[in-house]
Computed example of a mutant assay.
Amino acid sequence: MPTDHVLHIDASARPGLSGVDPHGSHTRRLTRRFVDRWRAIRPQDVVTYRDLGRKPPSPVTGEWIAAAFAPADQRDAAMRAHLAESDHLIAELRRADLVVIGAPMYNLGVPSPLKAWIDNIVRVGVTFGFDRNRTDDPYWPMLPPGKRLVILSSRGDCGYEAGGRLETFNLVERSITLPMSYIGITETYGVAIENDEFADDRLSASIAKAEAAIDTLVQELAGTPLDASSHTGSREAADL
Protein backbone atom coordinates (compact mmCIF):
# COMPACT_ATOMS: atom_id res chain seq x y z
CA MET A 1 0.00 0.00 0.00
CA PRO A 2 1.51 3.38 -0.98
CA THR A 3 2.35 5.93 1.67
CA ASP A 4 0.25 9.07 1.83
CA HIS A 5 0.90 12.28 3.72
CA VAL A 6 -1.71 13.74 6.08
CA LEU A 7 -1.54 17.37 7.18
CA HIS A 8 -3.38 17.71 10.53
CA ILE A 9 -4.19 21.30 11.48
CA ASP A 10 -5.82 22.54 14.68
CA ALA A 11 -6.94 26.16 14.97
CA SER A 12 -8.85 26.27 18.24
CA ALA A 13 -7.67 28.66 20.96
CA ARG A 14 -8.62 26.00 23.51
CA PRO A 15 -5.67 23.67 24.12
CA GLY A 16 -7.44 20.58 25.47
CA LEU A 17 -9.98 18.06 24.19
CA SER A 18 -13.65 18.20 25.05
CA GLY A 19 -14.72 15.18 27.06
CA VAL A 20 -11.20 14.90 28.46
CA ASP A 21 -10.06 18.34 29.62
CA PRO A 22 -12.09 21.10 31.32
CA HIS A 23 -13.32 23.53 28.65
CA GLY A 24 -11.56 21.43 26.02
CA SER A 25 -11.95 21.96 22.29
CA HIS A 26 -14.59 20.11 20.28
CA THR A 27 -12.65 20.51 17.05
CA ARG A 28 -9.45 19.16 18.56
CA ARG A 29 -11.50 16.20 19.77
CA LEU A 30 -12.79 15.61 16.23
CA THR A 31 -9.44 16.00 14.47
CA ARG A 32 -7.78 13.68 17.00
CA ARG A 33 -10.47 11.07 16.43
CA PHE A 34 -10.17 11.37 12.66
CA VAL A 35 -6.38 11.09 12.61
CA ASP A 36 -6.26 8.25 15.16
CA ARG A 37 -8.71 6.23 13.14
CA TRP A 38 -6.93 7.05 9.90
CA ARG A 39 -3.64 5.82 11.34
CA ALA A 40 -5.37 2.64 12.53
CA ILE A 41 -6.25 1.85 8.93
CA ARG A 42 -3.14 3.28 7.27
CA PRO A 43 -0.25 2.96 9.74
CA GLN A 44 2.30 3.53 6.97
CA ASP A 45 1.11 7.09 6.32
CA VAL A 46 3.00 10.13 7.54
CA VAL A 47 1.13 12.72 9.65
CA THR A 48 2.40 16.27 9.97
CA TYR A 49 0.78 18.23 12.79
CA ARG A 50 0.48 22.01 12.92
CA ASP A 51 -1.14 23.74 15.89
CA LEU A 52 -2.22 27.17 14.67
CA GLY A 53 -3.97 27.90 17.94
CA ARG A 54 -0.73 27.52 19.86
CA LYS A 55 1.58 29.03 17.24
CA PRO A 56 -0.33 31.36 14.90
CA PRO A 57 1.27 32.19 11.57
CA SER A 58 2.39 35.76 11.03
CA PRO A 59 -0.27 37.94 9.42
CA VAL A 60 0.26 39.29 5.94
CA THR A 61 1.95 42.71 5.96
CA GLY A 62 2.79 45.31 3.36
CA GLU A 63 6.34 43.97 3.22
CA TRP A 64 5.00 40.43 2.66
CA ILE A 65 2.81 41.61 -0.22
CA ALA A 66 5.67 43.52 -1.84
CA ALA A 67 7.90 40.45 -1.61
CA ALA A 68 5.23 38.06 -2.90
CA PHE A 69 4.52 40.17 -5.97
CA ALA A 70 8.18 40.83 -6.76
CA PRO A 71 9.75 38.50 -9.37
CA ALA A 72 11.55 35.69 -7.55
CA ASP A 73 14.92 36.57 -9.11
CA GLN A 74 14.59 40.18 -7.90
CA ARG A 75 13.91 39.49 -4.22
CA ASP A 76 16.57 40.59 -1.80
CA ALA A 77 17.40 38.87 1.50
CA ALA A 78 14.80 40.88 3.42
CA MET A 79 12.07 39.92 0.95
CA ARG A 80 13.01 36.26 1.16
CA ALA A 81 12.89 36.49 4.95
CA HIS A 82 9.37 37.94 4.82
CA LEU A 83 8.26 34.96 2.72
CA ALA A 84 10.14 32.23 4.60
CA GLU A 85 7.22 31.21 6.80
CA SER A 86 4.88 31.17 3.81
CA ASP A 87 7.37 29.01 1.90
CA HIS A 88 7.41 26.51 4.77
CA LEU A 89 3.63 26.35 5.11
CA ILE A 90 3.19 25.91 1.37
CA ALA A 91 5.79 23.12 1.31
CA GLU A 92 3.78 21.29 4.00
CA LEU A 93 0.61 21.70 1.99
CA ARG A 94 2.26 20.54 -1.23
CA ARG A 95 3.40 17.31 0.45
CA ALA A 96 -0.06 16.56 1.79
CA ASP A 97 -2.45 14.16 0.11
CA LEU A 98 -5.10 14.73 2.78
CA VAL A 99 -5.60 17.96 4.75
CA VAL A 100 -7.60 17.72 7.99
CA ILE A 101 -8.53 21.09 9.52
CA GLY A 102 -10.15 21.68 12.89
CA ALA A 103 -12.04 24.96 12.42
CA PRO A 104 -14.30 26.15 15.25
CA MET A 105 -16.78 28.90 14.52
CA TYR A 106 -15.71 32.19 16.11
CA ASN A 107 -18.20 35.01 15.53
CA LEU A 108 -19.58 33.15 12.50
CA GLY A 109 -16.14 32.82 10.85
CA VAL A 110 -12.84 31.02 11.33
CA PRO A 111 -10.26 31.78 14.06
CA SER A 112 -7.77 34.46 13.06
CA PRO A 113 -4.76 32.06 13.09
CA LEU A 114 -6.50 29.91 10.48
CA LYS A 115 -7.20 32.97 8.34
CA ALA A 116 -3.51 33.90 8.65
CA TRP A 117 -2.57 30.38 7.49
CA ILE A 118 -4.85 30.72 4.47
CA ASP A 119 -3.36 34.11 3.63
CA ASN A 120 0.12 32.62 3.78
CA ILE A 121 -0.61 29.66 1.51
CA VAL A 122 -2.70 31.44 -1.14
CA ARG A 123 0.16 33.08 -3.00
CA VAL A 124 0.51 34.35 -6.52
CA GLY A 125 2.98 32.47 -8.68
CA VAL A 126 3.28 29.67 -6.14
CA THR A 127 -0.16 28.20 -5.39
CA PHE A 128 -2.14 30.10 -8.01
CA GLY A 129 -1.14 31.64 -11.30
CA PHE A 130 -2.12 34.98 -12.76
CA ASP A 131 -1.73 36.33 -16.27
CA ARG A 132 -3.59 39.52 -17.18
CA ASN A 133 -3.23 38.60 -20.86
CA ARG A 134 -5.53 35.61 -20.36
CA THR A 135 -8.69 37.67 -20.72
CA ASP A 136 -11.05 34.68 -20.43
CA ASP A 137 -9.61 33.36 -17.16
CA PRO A 138 -6.48 35.09 -15.81
CA TYR A 139 -6.25 32.86 -12.70
CA TRP A 140 -5.48 29.14 -12.37
CA PRO A 141 -4.59 26.75 -9.52
CA MET A 142 -1.01 25.55 -9.14
CA LEU A 143 -1.15 22.89 -6.42
CA PRO A 144 -0.63 19.28 -7.51
CA PRO A 145 -4.00 17.63 -8.22
CA GLY A 146 -5.66 14.92 -6.16
CA LYS A 147 -5.55 16.47 -2.69
CA ARG A 148 -8.54 16.03 -0.37
CA LEU A 149 -9.75 18.35 2.38
CA VAL A 150 -11.66 17.50 5.57
CA ILE A 151 -13.10 20.36 7.66
CA LEU A 152 -14.12 19.48 11.23
CA SER A 153 -16.01 22.33 12.87
CA SER A 154 -18.01 23.22 15.98
CA ARG A 155 -20.80 25.74 16.47
CA GLY A 156 -22.66 27.23 19.39
CA ASP A 157 -26.14 26.99 17.86
CA CYS A 158 -27.58 24.62 15.26
CA GLY A 159 -28.90 24.95 11.72
CA TYR A 160 -25.74 26.20 10.01
CA GLU A 161 -25.67 23.32 7.52
CA ALA A 162 -26.78 23.66 3.88
CA GLY A 163 -30.49 24.34 3.90
CA GLY A 164 -30.51 25.07 7.64
CA ARG A 165 -32.12 28.11 9.23
CA LEU A 166 -28.71 29.74 9.85
CA GLU A 167 -26.98 28.65 6.64
CA THR A 168 -26.37 32.22 5.49
CA PHE A 169 -24.66 33.04 8.81
CA ASN A 170 -22.09 30.26 8.43
CA LEU A 171 -18.86 31.73 7.07
CA VAL A 172 -16.60 28.91 8.27
CA GLU A 173 -16.67 26.28 5.56
CA ARG A 174 -16.93 28.75 2.68
CA SER A 175 -14.01 30.81 3.96
CA ILE A 176 -11.90 27.65 3.73
CA THR A 177 -13.29 25.83 0.71
CA LEU A 178 -13.31 28.85 -1.62
CA PRO A 179 -9.62 29.80 -1.26
CA MET A 180 -8.61 26.14 -1.21
CA SER A 181 -10.48 25.46 -4.45
CA TYR A 182 -8.85 28.59 -5.88
CA ILE A 183 -5.43 26.97 -5.45
CA GLY A 184 -6.54 23.50 -6.56
CA ILE A 185 -8.19 21.56 -3.69
CA THR A 186 -11.78 20.91 -4.69
CA GLU A 187 -12.64 17.58 -3.06
CA THR A 188 -13.97 18.57 0.36
CA TYR A 189 -15.73 16.79 3.24
CA GLY A 190 -17.06 18.15 6.51
CA VAL A 191 -18.42 17.18 9.93
CA ALA A 192 -19.51 19.55 12.70
CA ILE A 193 -20.59 19.52 16.33
CA GLU A 194 -23.47 21.89 17.10
CA ASN A 195 -25.39 23.16 20.13
CA ASP A 196 -22.32 23.86 22.25
CA GLU A 197 -23.96 26.90 23.85
CA PHE A 198 -26.78 24.76 25.26
CA ALA A 199 -24.52 22.17 26.94
CA ASP A 200 -27.37 19.68 27.32
CA ASP A 201 -28.66 16.53 25.62
CA ARG A 202 -28.66 18.36 22.29
CA LEU A 203 -24.90 18.83 22.52
CA SER A 204 -24.34 15.22 23.61
CA ALA A 205 -26.39 13.96 20.68
CA SER A 206 -24.52 16.21 18.26
CA ILE A 207 -21.15 14.97 19.52
CA ALA A 208 -22.21 11.35 19.14
CA LYS A 209 -23.53 12.03 15.64
CA ALA A 210 -20.34 13.83 14.61
CA GLU A 211 -18.06 11.10 15.93
CA ALA A 212 -20.07 8.43 14.11
CA ALA A 213 -19.88 10.51 10.93
CA ILE A 214 -16.10 10.76 11.31
CA ASP A 215 -15.75 7.00 11.68
CA THR A 216 -17.79 6.50 8.50
CA LEU A 217 -15.87 9.21 6.64
CA VAL A 218 -12.50 7.71 7.55
CA GLN A 219 -13.58 4.32 6.24
CA GLU A 220 -14.88 5.95 3.05
CA LEU A 221 -11.73 7.96 2.37
CA ALA A 222 -9.25 5.29 3.44
CA GLY A 223 -11.08 2.68 1.43
CA THR A 224 -10.67 -0.19 3.90
CA PRO A 225 -12.51 -1.42 7.03
CA LEU A 226 -11.47 0.18 10.31
CA ASP A 227 -9.39 -1.85 12.75
CA ALA A 228 -9.66 0.21 15.93
CA SER A 229 -7.16 -2.00 17.77
CA SER A 230 -4.22 -0.53 15.82
CA HIS A 231 -3.07 3.04 16.38
CA THR A 232 0.54 3.00 15.18
CA GLY A 233 1.92 5.15 12.42
CA SER A 234 4.52 7.65 11.39
CA ARG A 235 4.08 11.18 12.65
CA GLU A 236 5.96 14.40 12.02
CA ALA A 237 5.69 17.21 14.55
CA ALA A 238 5.63 20.69 13.04
CA ASP A 239 5.81 23.58 15.46
CA LEU A 240 4.01 21.72 18.21
Rank of each mutant, 00 (worst) to 15 (best):
Q219W: 03
V47C: 01
V20C: 01
T177H: 12
L114G: 00
L152D: 09
A199V: 06
G146R: 14
L166T: 13
C158I: 01
G146Y: 13
F128W: 14
D136F: 05
A68T: 10
L89M: 08
M79V: 12
A212C: 13
D196S: 11
A210G: 07
S12G: 08
G19L: 06
P113I: 11
S230D: 04
V60Y: 12
R42P: 03
D4I: 10
A70P: 00
R132T: 12
L171C: 09
A208G: 05
H231G: 04
I121Y: 15
V35Q: 00
R33H: 08
A103F: 08
V35E: 00
G156L: 08
I9E: 00
T188H: 14
D45A: 05
A212Y: 11
I207G: 12
R50V: 06
T216G: 03
E167P: 09
M105W: 09
R148M: 02
I41P: 07
L93S: 03
R37A: 07
T177Q: 13
V35Y: 02
I101W: 01
D45P: 08
P144F: 00
G164D: 09
R39M: 13
G129E: 12
D137F: 11
A162M: 13
S12V: 03
Y139V: 10
D239P: 10
Q219L: 10
L98Y: 03
G223A: 07
L203H: 09
G53A: 06
A81S: 07
A210L: 02
A210W: 01
L108H: 02
R14K: 06
Y182V: 01
V20F: 02
A78R: 04
G24P: 00
L108P: 00
K209A: 14
G164F: 00
P225Q: 11
R235K: 02
A66K: 10
A238W: 07
I214G: 06
Y49C: 06
I121M: 15
G109P: 02
H23G: 06
A116I: 00
C158W: 02
A91R: 05
G62V: 08
I9Y: 04
A78S: 05
P22S: 05
I193N: 10
G233M: 05
W140K: 10
T224Q: 04
M79N: 05
Y139L: 09
F198E: 14
G16M: 02
T216Y: 05
L203K: 11
V172T: 11
T135F: 15
L7G: 12
T188N: 13
G19S: 06
H231L: 02
P104S: 13
G190K: 15
E92Y: 00
R37P: 03
T27R: 11
F198P: 00
R202L: 15
G102L: 14
G24E: 01
V150W: 15
L30H: 05
P145Y: 08
V46G: 06
H88R: 08
V218T: 07
D200R: 15
L143P: 07
A68R: 15
D157G: 11
L203W: 07
L166Y: 15
D157T: 15
M142W: 07
I151Y: 12
A222T: 01
D227V: 10
E220W: 01
R202V: 12
R54Y: 01
S25K: 13
D239S: 05
Q44W: 07
P43G: 03
M1Q: 12
V150Y: 13
A192N: 14
D51Y: 09
T3M: 07
